[in-house]
Design a protein around this nucleic acid. Structure first.
Lengths: 150, 150
DNA sequence: CTCATGTCAGGTTGACTGACATTG
DNA sequence: CCAATGTCAGTCGACCTGACATGA
């Protein structure tokens, strides 16, 4: 129990830490709810795929480009989710090189459920943040700031 | 250019994604500024150490406990920063088993500089967020919400 | 003897780069 | 021949768990 605890921000987390922790807590809660709804083996890292896949199926390279990652990384993601039954890969009829990544029926149900939970979670947290003394549209404000600064 | 792009949130990033991206962008900017100030080899992952080290030196296990990580992980962090000249380990005079992790003079200068930059960055971003239509203390609000929900 | 401190070895996750076969 | 699509192999960063030597 020394007087001087820490050189930086002991007892007063930085803004970046708070932002990170908030996102982390929300994602953990979402993952928990999806799991409890009967969809195991889904983690936050899988979000980029579900966020970017089209109902009619999407090529690996397109998915990777949209998610801002390499196609090799996206490939690994697809493999994992294929093994777990959420997506499947079918040959692209219009291009012999390509295959289309598609949601399975289970995958589609899971995504629908996830969407509902995301909406609920965002509503809960937005309310909580407002109750904590923040007025305005948090989501919209962050989006605006990021657009101008990133 | 299909009509249906993505199943989830195409064109409307989720709140968690926005929070994560904001934190990421801020940290990247901080790391860039520290690097430009003449302190190479510092990344966001090193923050937990600088955030928790005492001016008089701190034991590995204490650092790990404060940062909420294993002492093995913290040990690796310390090793890296020792190699780069920001911290050093000296035997604890009061305990033969322990060694005190201390900032080197360079480390101290770097931390001081980082602190100034963090304050500047937070001011910049807080202003930007307010200009984007958010009223109130973002940092304080997030801290409050996290305390009640985490 | 037990507990605290720290090291060593190895594993996991989620990304990355490079080299390459196949097809358009 | 050149570009696009994907796979295979290897690397890396930042964590983790387990086993252990040493000193309080």
């Amino acid at each position: 129990m020394s007087q001087e605890i820490g050189v930086l921000s002991r007892g007063a987390p930085t803004l970046t830490a708070l932002l990170r922790m908030t996102a982390q807590t929300m994602v953990a809660e979402l993952v928990r709810r999806i799991h409890d709804a009967g969809y195991p083996g889904i983690s936050g890292a899988h979000h980029p795929l579900f966020e970017n896949i089209d109902p009619a199926g999407t090529r690996l390279t397109t998915l990777a480009a949209r998610a801002g990652m390499t196609h090799q990384s996206m490939s690994e993601l697809v493999q994992t989710l294929e093994r777990r039954g959420y997506v499947e890969r079918i040959p692209d009829p219009s291009d012999g090189r390509a295959r289309l990544v598609m949601l399975t029926p289970t995958g589609r149900r899971m995504v629908r459920r996830a969407l509902r939970e995301i909406i609920k979670l965002e509503r809960e947290w937005t309310t909580a943040v407002r109750d904590a003394g923040l007025d305005g549209d948090l989501k919209q404000a962050l989006a605006t700031v990021l657009r101008t600064r990133a």
